[in-house]
């Protein structure tokens, strides 16, 4: 099963990525061919100006798949949720 066969995927946005997209989370159906985190970012960016703005600094934005840190080249196959956020600043 891949995320590209009509399976809903939960996307979460945090901090200024959340502010720029104007939403904390959403359920999306990702089209076939979107296989990596980087593919997903490119697809999200094309959805509207707020996403274009949120992901304009996509080299800065970090991602997690199913609550684990991942790289842009990581696969989203079978994922339940993908989160996008700026570098963390806790502690």
């Amino acid at each position: 099963m891949t995320a590209g066969h009509g399976t809903p995927l939960k996307i979460l946005y945090f901090a200024w990525v959340r502010e720029k997209t104007g939403r904390a989370s959403e359920d999306v159906v990702v089209p076939q061919g979107i296989e990596t985190v980087g593919d997903l970012v490119a697809w999200l960016k094309a959805r509207g100006p707020e996403f274009e703005a949120a992901f304009a600094r996509s080299d800065v934005i970090r991602a997690a798949v199913d609550q684990t840190h991942v790289k842009p080249t990581s696969l989203i196959t079978g994922a339940r949720e993908v989160a996008f956020f700026p570098p963390v600043t806790g502690g």
Binding site: F14, A15, A64, H69, A83, F85, P86, V88, T89, G90, G91
Partner: peptide
Amino acid sequence: LKTRAPFWKK
């Protein structure tokens, strides 16, 4: 924790 735990300060 400072580089991995998903917290953000404003």
